[in-house]
C-alpha cells in the first residue's frame, strides 16, 4: 500500500538516504532497522512529508504523494510518531490525544470521546487528566502512539517507540502494537530492540549508510552477511562464522 521508490535525500554533500526503496504490504507489520545514523528517521520524515526527497517518489495506494504537505498526508491516512517525543507539554494527556482525534471528528464531544477510547486502547486511561509534561518516558511513548492513533490512520509509522523503555515496559507495549495491527492499521516501525522486531515484524528492511542492504523475514535478515557487517564492521561475518565453526569443532580442532 505504501511504496517508496528510489528515494534519495541529500543535505549538501551528505547523502542521508541513497536510492532506497521499500514496499509495505497492507495489514502487515514491517520493520525498518539499521545501525545508528543509517538514515531511518530521515526516510520516515520523507514518508510523512516533513522532508522533500531530493529524488524519488512516495505513493500511497498507488497515488503519488511525493509533493503533498504533511497535514495532507495525515488526512490521506499516514500517521507518525517522533523518535524524540513531541508532546504538547502545556496540555494534559486527554487534550493531547484530542488534537489527533479532531482530524476525523469535527465535533468537540465526538473528538473528546474518541480520544478517551484511544487512551483506553494504549493503556493511558488512568492518566487522562495528568499534564503531558509530568508523564514518565514510557507514558510519553504511549502518548505519542495514542495521538497518532487518534487520527485513525491507515498506516502508522512508529519511530523507536520502544527506545528508552525497560524490559517489562517493552513486554507491556508489544501486545498493544499487535492489537493495533489486528484492528486493521498497517504498521511500519523503526526499532532497535531486536526482541520486538523478531516478535512483531513479518518483513524487515535494513538500511545502512542510506542504502537498503537487505530485506526479508526477520530470521533471514539477521543471518545476512551484509547486515552483520553493517552492524559489527567489515569482516565480522566471516569471523563469527569461523568462531562458531571452531566452537562446534570442540577441543580437537
Amino acid at each position: 500500500m505504501l511504496k517508496v521508490e528510489n528515494a534519495t535525500m541529500r543535505f549538501g554533500g551528505l547523502i542521508a538516504v541513497n536510492n532506497a526503496s521499500l514496499d509495505v504490504r497492507e495489514g502487515s507489520i514491517t520493520g525498518l532497522i539499521g545501525p545508528n545514523g543509517a538514515g531511518k528517521t530521515t526516510l520516515f520524515a520523507i514518508i510523512a512529508g516533513f522532508l522533500k526527497p531530493t529524488e524519488g517518489a512516495i505513493s500511497l495506494y498507488g497515488k503519488d504523494i511525493t509533493t503533498e504537505q504533511p497535514h495532507r498526508r495525515a488526512i490521506s491516512g499516514i500517521a507518525r510518531t517522533f523518535q524524540i517525543v513531541q508532546p504538547f507539554a502545556g496540555l494534559n494527556v486527554h487534550e493531547n490525544i484530542t488534537v489527533g482525534a479532531y482530524l476525523r471528528h469535527a465535533k468537540p464531544s465526538d473528538a473528546v470521546e474518541k480520544a478517551r477510547e484511544v487512551a483506553r486502547q494504549v493503556g493511558l486511561e488512568k492518566d487522562l487528566e495528568k499534564s503531558a509534561a509530568s508523564l514518565t518516558v514510557a507514558g510519553r511513548k504511549r502518548l505519542e502512539l495514542a495521538r497518532a492513533l487518534a487520527t485513525e490512520p491507515k498506516i502508522l509509522l512508529l519511530d523507536e517507540v520502544l527506545a528508552g523503555l525497560n524490559p517489562s515496559e517493552i513486554r507491556d507495549i508489544i501486545p498493544v502494537i499487535r492489537t493495533i495491527r489486528n484492528s486493521g492499521v498497517t504498521i511500519l516501525m523503526i526499532e532497535h530492540v531486536m526482541q520486538a522486531v523478531m516478535n512483531l515484524c513479518e518483513h524487515v528492511y535494513v538500511l545502512a549508510q542510506g542504502k537498503m542492504i537487505a530485506e526479508g523475514t526477520p530470521t533471514v535478515v539477521c543471518n545476512d552477511q551484509a547486515v552483520i557487517e553493517a552492524y559489527l564492521g567489515k569482516g565480522s561475518a566471516e569471523r563469527i562464522a569461523r568462531q562458531s565453526a571452531e566452537n562446534t569443532g570442540g577441543p580437537n580442532a
Binding site: 516533513f50 504537505q69 504533511p70 500517521a79 517522533f82 502545556g90 489527533g100 487518534a150
Partner: peptide, 10 residues
C-alpha cells in the same frame, strides 16, 4: 505547543 507535532496530526 509544537508545530511539528501538530503537522503530523493533520
Amino acid at each position: 505547543e509544537n508545530e511539528d507535532a501538530a503537522k503530523a496530526l493533520g
